[in-house]
Simulated scan of single mutants.
Amino acid sequence: MKTLNKLFFAMAVVSLTSCSYVEHFEKRAQVINGLEDRILLLSKENQDLKNKLMQANYKVKTLESRNFYLETQLKDKAPKKETYKQREIASVAKVNSNDLVKYDVYKWDAKEMISIAQKEFDAKNYEKSAQFFNSYTKNFPNSKDVDADFLFQAGVASYESGKHYDWSEKYFTYLTKKYPTSKYYLGAKLWLGMSYLKQNRRDEFFAVVEEFRKKYRNTPEWNILSGHYEKIVQKYKKN
């Protein structure tokens, strides 16, 4: 009997202890879940702060670029004081009035030139943009910044300037050869064809058109060409 009582007592203790452990673990689980929720919330808040910081940095950079652009514009327009050095430069070589870069005068660094080229491009001042891009490639020929993005933007600026179709041909040709997997590849092919057309190089132009007709008929670029294809063919067959 005593043994039986001891057994019941032991079972009761185990049961109470188990209940205590269950309650303990439930409370611990609640605490842990609460901490996890808090961690997730803090993580989200941290990410939001990072995003806001990135946006703030972007705005700062944008303002810095605009400020730099305005300074360069003012530098172009401000009356220049006569100095011995300037008179000496003028006496050595005449400044080309069509040169909007004036690299020999201002000695732009690489970052400044790209910034101005892109700002002028965004403002649709394609002539100045094209000149800065072209001057950049001459003064910094080994720059790593001359990538697919640079070449495509420089090519479009040159084409849209209405003057430098030989430059646009150069950029788009180089882009298609060096970056055949670039997202700009087909676009560069299209602009290259149009550069040929503007230079009245019909054979090269029709070679590009035929390449699109045979290989890239399901592309937006072909949709642009196909709308004018027959008209262009008829026009140049008559000439």
Rank of each mutant, 00 (worst) to 15 (best):
K128S: 05
K27F: 08
Y84T: 08
W167K: 10
K231W: 07
I232W: 04
L151T: 01
S195W: 05
N96D: 14
R202K: 14
H24V: 04
M54G: 00
K80A: 06
R202Q: 12
E211D: 15
Y165F: 15
L186H: 03
Q118V: 10
A207T: 12
G193I: 06
K170A: 07
A117P: 01
K102M: 10
S97K: 14
K177P: 01
N51E: 09
K85G: 02
D145P: 01
E204A: 13
Y106S: 07
A10K: 08
Y106V: 08
H228F: 13
T181H: 11
K124V: 02
F9N: 11
L225V: 13
A78S: 08
E230C: 02
N33E: 14
A78Y: 06
S158K: 01
A110F: 06
E64C: 02
R213Y: 09
Y216W: 14
S20M: 12
S15M: 06
Q47P: 00
N33T: 07
Y185V: 07
Y84L: 11
K128F: 00
L7Q: 13
K124Q: 11
V156H: 00
D76I: 08
D147S: 04
I39V: 15
A157V: 03
F172Q: 03
P79H: 00
E204Q: 15
L190F: 12
K177C: 02
K107H: 13
K138Q: 12
K94R: 09
F172R: 04
I32E: 12
R217W: 09
F206D: 02
S182I: 13
L186Y: 04
F172S: 03
I32T: 15
Y171M: 15
Y174M: 07
Y58M: 05
A157F: 00
N98K: 12
Q86H: 12
F8I: 14
A188D: 04
Q86E: 10
I32F: 11
Y136N: 04
R202A: 06
H24Y: 15
K6W: 10
E120C: 04
Y103G: 01
K111Y: 07
R28W: 05
K81W: 02
S97V: 15
D166N: 15
K61Q: 13
K215C: 06
H228D: 14
L100N: 03
K119G: 01
A56I: 05
K2N: 11
E45G: 07
Y236R: 02
Q234D: 09
Y171I: 08
A93R: 06
L192Y: 05
L70G: 00
E64F: 03
R217N: 10
K215L: 07
V92G: 03
V156Y: 00
F9M: 10
L175C: 10
K27G: 09
V60Q: 10
N223E: 11
K6V: 13
D145V: 11
I224R: 09
L74Y: 07
W222A: 05
S226W: 06
K107S: 14
E112D: 14
S129R: 01
L16S: 13
D76W: 05
K119Y: 02
K235G: 04
E230K: 13
G162N: 05
K61H: 11
